[in-house]
Write a protein that binds this DNA or RNA. Structure first.
Length: 306
DNA sequence: AAGACGAAAGTGGTTGA
DNA sequence: TCAACAACTTTCGTCTT
């Protein structure tokens, strides 16, 4: 797995960090995110249950859910799968099979359109291929279960993408999804919750740390500040300042404080815009951070030194 | 003049009876 | 199903640099 890029185009630094899971290469010297869309070296699928496992584990040519006819139309309820199912799963499959027989052409048409849309949004957001795959799979499952009925195709696509991002710890905010897909934020949230609940997809609360590199890069903060922010974030988590709070707000506040400490001051407004929260939220988090951790000292010291 | 701060009122979502 | 509730936003006035 070679690193194709040897030097940072921004600063010429050679200190490049490869983040496999997020599909990112980050320059350690200037913090520039060089490549976000690179191939993912890890396992790019998740297995919900054993028949999924059989389908997804593979030797030989890869199959992909981003192609509309994969997993649909031709092979639901084929012999091999049925033997491995029992009870509820078996019934479900019989049901699906009958259902699918009737409307398979409609589903195919739907999928073809939806996956085109999915690819469009995904590339707009520069999401790793692995996330796109996951989203495609979620969407496929959703269609098979008839969850799209009564909802716009686009919103389900957006919801699936959002869920896929979360599962792969490459979180995008609802705002970003909304901008990319042109769907109302609330609508995405709604379908996202609905789909994940119906499909029994368990999503961990997103970790604020995952937002840091992207925000830091967008704010052109030094890698030093970036790691400082992560440090602060970890301290905050230990002090249980993070539970129940919006992860983006916490990430933003940590960055803001880190920037202060490192004399790279950004205004609250700037940070707030990038993170998609308001200044007020940053202030509140910021206040809590100062109070619970003794960061005050660190900032004071800097002021005196300066 | 711009940024930081905080109070007050409003919004959408979750929770628990 | 409804009301209480927490988190977050919007708006606005005041203080600081």
């Amino acid at each position: 797995m070679a690193n194709y890029i040897k030097k940072c185009p921004e600063c010429g630094g050679i200190n490049l960090i490869l983040n496999k899971e997020k599909g990112e290469i980050i320059c350690k010297d200037c913090g520039l995110v060089i490549e976000e869309k690179m191939i993912d070296f890890g396992q790019e699928w998740r297995e919900f249950d054993h028949d999924q496992a059989d389908k997804m584990r593979r030797t030989g040519a890869p199959m992909t859910y981003t192609k509309f006819d994969r997993g649909l139309g031709t092979d639901i309820g084929q012999k091999g799968d049925l033997y491995k199912l029992e009870g509820k799963g078996r019934n479900k499959y019989f049901r699906l099979r009958k259902w699918q027989y009737r409307v398979s052409t409609a589903i195919e048409r739907n999928l073809k359109l939806a996956l085109a849309e999915l690819r469009r949004v995904s590339s707009y957001l520069k999401l790793p291929k692995s996330v796109e795959e996951e989203a495609a799979r979620i969407y496929t499952l959703a269609v098979q279960r008839g969850l799209v009925r009564g909802r716009s195709m686009e919103s389900v696509v957006a919801g699936a993408l959002y869920a896929a991002c979360r599962r792969h710890e490459v979180p995008r905010t609802l705002d970003e999804l909304s901008e990319a897909s042109g769907i109302d934020k609330k609508e995405i949230g709604r379908t996202y919750r609905f789909v994940t609940r119906e499909l029994g997809i368990r999503i961990l609360p997103s970790n604020p740390v995952d937002y840091i590199p992207r925000f830091a890069s967008a704010l052109k903060l030094s890698p030093d500040t970036q790691s400082k922010a992560v440090e602060i974030l970890e301290m905050a988590q230990k002090s249980e300042l993070t539970s129940g709070r919006g992860p983006t707000g916490i990430a933003a506040a940590s960055l803001y404080v880190a920037a202060l400490i490192n004399n790279e001051k950004k205004t609250q407004r700037e940070v707030a815009d990038i993170a998609g929260v308001t200044e007020v939220t940053i202030r509140n988090r910021y206040k809590e951070l100062l109070k619970k951790l003794n960061l005050k000292d660190q900032i004071k010291k800097k002021e005196i030194a300066a």
